[in-house]
Design a protein around this nucleic acid. Structure first.
Length: 581
RNA sequence: GCGGCCGUAGUCUAGUCUGGUAGGACGCCGGCCUGCCACGCCGGAGGACCCGGGUUCAAAUCCCGGCGGCCGCACCA
């Protein structure tokens, strides 16, 4: 018995939704091609996501490079966090992380040891394979980011981004300026990410190169109420939170938004808002709420940058619960790290509830005076002094009476001293970030799996009409020039209205319908001999196979209403169409 | 990366154990049938049997290596 996944993969390959890449060279796992219909389907899903998560929320999108210099992912913590030293057992072949292996044996391990150092430790402690007792091979790095070189100099190492998020963090300062310091800010990015997975084997579910749709919502954690959850208070979510998992349950509980807030399961309102939206997004795509859940990630499962994470999961036939989006509280980790590594101040201002008085005590060097006294040293002295902030300089001068740089002793007279009281009404802080992050390829696959139905021995892809890659089909009942002429003019009408139309002929009508059903075309118009006399055609529903007679000049309206979400039967009855038996 | 199973026209597959240079179905092309749910009939094209090496007079078939797939282990930050 074929699993549903196997059937979907077979259909996808046969009809051109997706297939393994580089097939003529034997294929490379982790890389897939999205074919003609797959691209159209993905685009519709992406556009719907844009409506929900970008435009409707007043957010904007950016498009940053996929390749970054080394320092970006050093700052983000990925270089450290993505690189583990692994050892492989020589006899049973199992792989272990060197650090956890040693820690389990009670050996103290420092952070960031090199493979050779691990080798010494393993030999000294006589560590054997915990699984079979065999001897262990040489430890080696395993890094899941793709590395490349930038320009012709091999020492300029670059990385292919493992997430689009860093682009939004790195560019935050400019974005903040562009929006003239409006705050909070939501930024989205849709694009490719790259992860050099060890052994991806679930087709389009685990790719080495994949499309991500991410929002970084920058906000003030002390004032997180941009989103109004009131209208969603009674909406329910299936949630498998930490407490349930710890109590040993694999079963989620269904809670209302109100309960989730009251029990503090999700702290940030914005995060919960995105989760509710994510659930609706998938429902609109045809994946019922009952097949979705949010699973909290436990301590060890979370990425290094996240304080709290809920994965939105969808129940798939073959693989069980599979993550399709992640909702992470990234705190101010990323921005503060980039601030530190770049030396730039990355902060926004917050209005204080009460103005407060601060005492400013600063010392600014006076280059002219220093130059008069030490004309030869001025350059060096100024350079050294610039290492200190004005307030640090004040402090040193205040405590020591002078400051010594490079054999030059400068007392207060070489500085302009500022001592004043100031009323401040704002304070600076580094924004916190809540991130909903979606895997477009997985979502597209899930949509295909949930749309896949069989009718007898035929396959029908019951995609919602508003995401169907092809909106309508037009067929002549018979392979005759007069009928084909009428069909061609209906095709033109629909194309002029902006629809993609599938036109086919020459085979039996059943065969034509069957092909259209497999690529999910929601509606078909068939030109027959009667059409030549009364300018009507039959309109056929993909899912029920019901047919009505419709005037040719109303065909475009019918399709328009269908892709706006109205049901086939509702349109037929409100148009007063004659049923065909 | 380890273990098990697998790789034959576009697709699914028979043949592999017991070596003798490939057969079917669907699809595709042409013709008839003018038929509203993969209609029926006739004809046709399409295959160095995943790649490389070995054994043999002879390899899709046996042996070794590689690549790829599925399942399990590990991994999935």
């Amino acid at each position: 018995m074929m699993s549903k996944a196997d059937k979907v993969f077979s259909l996808a390959r046969r009809r051109g939704f997706f297939w393994p890449a580089y097939e003529i060279y034997g294929g490379v796992s982790g890389f897939y091609v999205w074919g003609p219909y797959g691209v159209l389907l993905k685009r519709k899903i992406r556009d719907l996501w844009r409506e929900l998560f970008v435009y409707n929320l007043g957010f904007f999108e950016i498009d940053s490079p996929t390749i970054s210099p080394y320092i970006v992912f050093e700052a983000s913590g990925h270089v450290e966090g993505f690189k583990d030293v692994m050892v492989t057992c020589k006899s049973c072949g199992k792989k272990f992380r060197a650090d956890t292996l040693l820690k389990e044996k009670g050996v103290e391990v420092e952070e960031g040891l090199k493979p050779e150092e691990y080798l010494d430790l393993i030999n000294r402690e006589g560590i054997k394979c915990p699984s079979c007792g065999g001897s262990l091979g040489d430890p080696d790095y395993f890094m899941t980011m793709f590395k490349t070189t930038i320009g012709p100099y091999s020492d300029a190492i670059g990385f292919l981004r493992p997430e689009t998020a860093q682009g939004m963090f790195v560019e935050f300062k400019r974005i903040y300026e562009v929006f003239r310091k409006r705050f909070p800010i939501g930024i989205a990015q849709i694009g490719r990410g790259f992860r050099n997975e060890i052994s991806p084997r679930q087709g389009v579910i685990r790719l080495r190169e994949f499309d991500m749709m991410e929002v970084e919502y920058f906000f003030d954690p002390e004032n997180d109420d941009q989103f109004d959850l009131d209208e969603y208070m009674d909406e329910t979510l299936n949630i498998l939170h930490e407490k349930l998992i710890r109590e040993g349950g694999g079963e989620y509980e269904t809670l209302t938004v109100k309960e989730i807030l009251e029990r503090g399961i999700v702290e940030h309102k914005s995060m919960l808002y995105f989760m509710v939206l994510a659930q609706r997004f998938l429902e609109i795509l045809g994946i019922p709420k009952s097949r979705q859940r949010f699973r909290e990630k436990l301590e060890g499962e979370r990425a290094h940058y996240a304080r709290k994470v809920f994965d939105q999961e969808v129940l798939l036939d073959k693989w069980g619960w599979v993550e399709v989006s992640g909702h992470a509280d990234r705190t101010n980790y990323d921005l503060s790290r980039h601030a530190k590594y770049s030396g730039e101040e990355i902060a926004v201002e917050r209005l204080l509830p009460e103005p407060k008085t601060v005492y400013i005590r600063e010392a600014y060097p006076e280059p002219k005076k220093i130059k008069e006294q030490y004309p030869d040293k001025i350059g060096l002295v100024m350079k050294e002094l610039s290492r200190y902030s004005p307030s640090e300089l004040y402090k040193i001068l205040d405590e020591n009476g002078s400051i010594e740089v490079d054999d030059v002793k400068l007392d207060k007279s070489f500085f302009r001293i500022v001592e004043e009281e100031k009323r401040v009404t704002v304070e600076k802080f580094i924004p916190h970030v809540v991130e909903p992050s979606f895997g477009l390829d997985r979502i597209t696959y899930a949509v295909l799996e949930y749309s896949y139905t069989e009718r007898g021995d035929r396959v029908v892809l019951s995609l919602p009409a508003y995401i169907a890659p092809i909106e309508a089909a037009v067929y002549p009942l018979l392979d005759r020039d007069d009928l084909k002429g009428v069909a061609a003019s209906i095709v033109r009408d629909l194309e002029m209205a902006g629809f993609r139309v599938f036109y086919d002929y020459g085979d039996s009508i059943g065969r034509l319908y069957a092909r259209g059903d497999e690529i999910g075309i929601p509606v078909a118009f068939t030109v027959d001999l009667r059409s030549l006399n009364d300018d009507t055609v039959t309109v056929r529903d993909r899912d029920s196979w019901r047919q009505y007679r419709i005037e040719i000049n109303r065909v475009v309206e019918f399709v328009e209403r269908l892709v706006e979400g109205e049901s086939f039967e509702s349109i037929a009855s409100s148009m007063g169409l004659e049923s065909v038996d």
